[in-house]
Design a protein around this nucleic acid. Structure first.
Length: 876
RNA sequence: GGGAGUUUAGCUCAGCUGGUUCAGAGCACCUGCCUUACAAGCAGGGGGUCACUGGUUCGAAUCCAGUAACUCCCA
């Protein structure tokens, strides 16, 4: 059967993914093996796969597949997040396209549309994960708004409320006046815009003179309740206790002193509008200032503003500047670049606004979660994030739980007709409580009004490692007992606080135990210019296109090659290309081996036996190295190690040695051993490149139905002989030396060459055989005398000569030797400098001194060899 | 403004508690080869004052201090 010279991933990928599914190879149920459990960071339910997902899930898949081959009962739980604001925004936009205004719908009607949308677009991303080979237990697929997960969320809210941890309070939120909702900090995009800085004069109340303040938002002066200066500012030393008049509205406001004010900025005097700026709010709070909210929910001015009531905030800005100028309050206007927050969804300018919200008190809850990281009960990879984590947790702020949205878990609080509220798991229980609280037994459900808001999405995802196993509602079920705590969480550092820290908090609060052993933080995928990949920039390739182009294995390898933990990774297409090329290399190695005719009549050649022994020793060594890398979550390096092992050692050296001459058969023993080694290589590669390894593993031997490389053990750690590796490395140097001579002298590979060796020690006959084969040597013999007219080179203190009458320029040879001699002398010099330094000899550890002495001896013998050689040439 | 981190070859990064071939890897680059497994390849090769300045030490890419540039997080 003719095998194509190029590997074609499209032909095998779907086949093997179905095979794995059909044979239940991803399925996990508790048994007596050790579990290895990973919960997926749930992507947005209506999202599509982007490069970040590709990286995130490739890493998880590598870890899961390897653990499986280490004999663990692996369980990778997939699922999606309802992502309330993102999904709701998409639904609102879709309805708008259809001419439907969200505000014209009832909550139930809107939820109907939202669920339709979810049914239509939900889960696409999970199907896409299958294309990259994800070994998820699909029977466990979870969604944060599934009944069991929703109930868990509500139960936890009620529980925390009953523990007194949840309270209501006023807070400044990012208000989107177009969508008329608060948006989270993460949904605000800051853009640098060209604007103006207005210098306005505030007169003193009751005396002459004025103070000039600078602001970018002159319309907010209507809400000013103070002017603040730095107490250390000599310009304003006399302002203490004075009052100023706000222009136009003529309100009298105090001057307050606070070191918060940046003396360098503007005039050093800052107007304070507590209702419309977060910093001003904090200052207002500190100095007990009045709060005047001058905006309506849609961004027009409210009655409280007194002027321009009902006008849009941006129209007011233009108008008020004209009015201020007319009345002489404007000192000057400068151009100014500042950062303005825009709503990610509607692109409206965000208005900071005070509103009543639900909060979770964090200080006490955070304590065990902080300790867990500090005492390494949970390990962070890379550990550099520990400090950041600590800083955040030590200064943790209360968590604003409510969002003015419909899509999500509705807050289980019901307001009572006469004021006050109750919190309960459902309407019935709410009613019971309401009756109790009011003493009114005639209350009906219709008398209660449930809070309109939903919970922050993170308030459901923080339970994820517990709720996917139903461990909140049913804390003693078999799954949660077996899989919890999970082994590793793989995610990006940008959500370390939003998600990871909160999961840890929830883990200790609801299981009394950490949710995972290890957190592996990977970087953000960026393009070649370090720009974040984003749709709007158009610099993000569709990962599935790349999978099509380079194969899933090639794409996975491309992701991993640039993914040192915690570093951002700069992705470009050369990476999956490298992955594809590697697949092709593996494929062709298989083609070679597979094509060999076997003869049981010929004995195994010496060079093959020595090569097999060498490579097995090397693999044993590399298994150690790989285990170490995996323990440290250094996946990129682990992959590189396997890559070099396969490409350089296995293909370029090993296969070239054992390869029979053209159209000659191979001895059966070598063939068998080559296949064994091939099998090992495939197993080492499988976690990284599942498809091609399964394909070839199935081809190199007859397998039982249902068998899969997925469940074959990884090669185990075995002792290895260092001497074998060292001697082989020396042999490689010799071969390289000969090849080098060929290259320099332009000698075709086909032309066999004689090789003379002058050396006090001898090579093993087996290795001589290898040299003869690889370097095209016709005869190899030892000599006492340098051969005339030879090209030569040194390996250690061994001298090698290739007689090439007529081809060799004695002068050039001599110069080469002269250079080597100088280098060796320089090297000896630096060694001697150390050894002649008494303080070095006295202070350095004996071992280090010994190393230097060995270096000295080696260098001296090498120098002697070279000098003799040069002397010999001179005498001719 | 507060905090964390980075700076090593053209690019992306390894270099753990100072001391072996400590200056490395992959890619890119250069040269020669279409040698019937693979040109998505083979063989060979060049390339770095380890950001800068000073200090500690017998010895510093590695430890300390300062300087500069960049990145991220929080505000």
């Amino acid at each position: 059967m003719e095998i194509p010279a190029k590997y074609n991933p499209a032909e095998v990928e779907d086949k093997w993914y179905s095979y794995w599914l059909d044979n239940n190879l991803f399925r996990s149920v508790p048994d007596n093996r050790e579990p290895y459990c990973v919960v997926i960071p749930p992507p947005n339910v209506t999202g599509v796969l982007h490069m970040g997902h590709m990286l995130n899930n490739t890493i998880q898949d590598v870890l899961v597949r390897r653990a499986k081959m280490m004999g663990k009962n692996t369980c990778w739980v997939p699922g999606t997040d309802h992502a309330s604001i993102a999904t709701e925004a998409k639904v609102v936009a879709k309805l708008r396209d259809e001419g439907i205004d969200k505000n014209s719908l009832t909550r139930d009607e809107f939820m109907g549309h939202a669920w339709d949308w979810k049914e239509k677009h939900g889960g696409i991303i999970l199907e896409q994960l299958k294309k990259m080979g994800a070994a998820c237990d699909w029977e466990r697929t979870a969604f944060t708004m599934d009944e069991s997960l929703s109930e868990s969320v509500i139960k936890v809210f009620v529980d925390l409320h009953s523990k007194g941890k949840i309270y209501r309070g006023v807070r400044m939120v990012n208000w989107d006046p177009q969508a008329k909702t608060a948006v989270s900090d993460e949904e605000v995009v800051y853009k640098e815009i060209q604007s103006k800085l207005y210098y306005l004069n505030y007169s003193f109340d009751g005396e002459d003179g004025h103070v000039t303040i600078a602001t970018t938002r002159p319309e907010t002066i209507l809400g000013d309740t103070a002017v603040c200066v730095n107490p250390n500012d000599p310009r304003y030393a006399n302002l203490k206790g004075k009052r100023l008049i706000v222009p136009l509205v003529k309100r009298s406001i105090p001057v307050i002193l606070d070191e918060y004010v940046d003396m360098e900025f503007g005039t050093g005097a800052l107007k304070i509008t507590p209702a419309h700026d977060i910093n001003d709010y904090t200052l207002g709070d500190k100095h007990n200032l009045e709060t005047i909210d001058i905006f309506n929910d849609d961004g027009t001015l409210s009655e409280a503003a007194q002027l321009y009531v009902g006008m849009d905030r941006f129209d007011v800005r233009k108008k008020i500047v004209v009015d201020l100028e007319e009345q002489g309050f404007v000192e000057k206007i400068e151009n100014y670049v500042n950062k303005v927050g825009y709503s990610e969804r509607t692109d409206a300018v965000i208005e900071p606004k005070l509103s009543m919200q639900w909060f979770l008190s964090m200080k006490e809850l955070a304590k065990p979660a902080l300790d867990a990281i500090l005492n390494e009960d949970i390990k962070l990879h890379p550990p550099k994030f520990v400090n950041t984590y600590r800083h955040w947790m030590e200064n943790v702020k209360d968590w604003c739980l409510s969002r003015q949205l419909w899509w999500g878990h509705r807050i289980p609080a019901w307001y009572l007709p006469g004021g006050g509220y109750v919190v309960a798991e459902n309407e019935e229980q709410a009613l019971v409580q309401a009756k109790k609280k009011t003493g009114n037994q005639n209350l009906a459900i219709s008398d209660l009004r449930q809070d309109e808001d939903v919970l922050d999405t993170w308030f459901s995802s923080w339970l994820w490692p517990i709720s996917v196993f139903d461990g909140i509602r049913n804390p003693h079920n078999d799954d949660i007992k077996y899989y919890y705590p999970t082994n590793v969480l793989v995610t990006a550092p940008e959500i370390l606080f939003f998600w990871v820290a909160r999961m840890i908090i929830a883990g200790y609060e609801y299981r009394g135990e950490k949710p995972f052993e290890t957190v592996y933080l990977h970087g953000i995928v960026r393009d070649g210019q370090r720009r974040k990949m984003s749709k709007s920039l158009g610099n993000s390739p569709d990962p599935l296109d790349l999978v099509k182009k380079y194969g899933a294995d090639g794409m996975r390898m491309g992701m991993l090659l640039c993914s040192a933990a915690g570093n951002d990774l700069l992705f470009d297409e050369s990476l999956p290309e490298q992955g594809r090329n590697f697949c092709n290399k593996i494929w062709n190695a298989f083609r070679l081996v597979q094509g060999w005719e076997v003869s049981s009549d010929i004995p195994q050649p010496n060079h093959s036996a020595v090569a097999v022994n060498w490579l097995n020793n090397l693999i044993n060594h590399k298994v150690d190295v790989l285990n170490d890398y995996f323990e440290k979550y250094r996946l990129s390096e682990a992959l590189m190690e396997v890559y070099k092992l396969f490409w350089d050692e296995f293909s370029s050296w090993f296969l070239e040695i054992v390869k029979p001459a053209y159209q000659q058969p191979i001895d059966s023993k070598t063939k068998e051993q080559v296949l064994e080694i091939f099998d090992k290589m495939l197993r080492l590669l499988h976690p990284f490149m599942p498809f091609i390894t399964e394909e070839l593993w199935q081809l190199i031997a007859v397998r039982k139905p249902g068998a899969s490389i997925m469940v074959v053990p990884q090669p185990q750690e075995n002792p290895f002989d260092d001497g074998v590796l060292t001697r082989f490395a020396e042999m490689k140097e010799i071969v390289a030396g000969i090849r080098n001579v060929r290259q320099e002298k332009n000698i075709p590979n086909k032309e066999l060459l004689p090789l003379l060796i002058k050396s006090s020690k001898k090579l093993s006959p087996q290795l001589e055989g290898v040299i003869i084969k690889l370097a095209g040597i016709e005869s190899l013999r030892y000599t006492e005398e340098p051969a005339e007219g030879s090209a030569g080179f040194l390996v250690g203190s061994m001298e090698f000569f290739i007689p090439l009458h007529g081809f060799v320029n004695e002068e050039e040879e001599k110069q080469k030797l002269q250079q080597e001699l100088e280098y060796a002398k320089g090297f000896l010099g630096s060694v001697m400098k150390k050894l002649n330094n008494e303080r070095f000899v006295n202070n350095a550890p004996a071992k280090v001194v010994e190393i230097e002495q060995n270096k000295k001896a080696d260098a001296e013998s090498k120098i002697k060899v070279i000098e003799e050689r040069i002397a010999g040439m001179k005498s001719k």
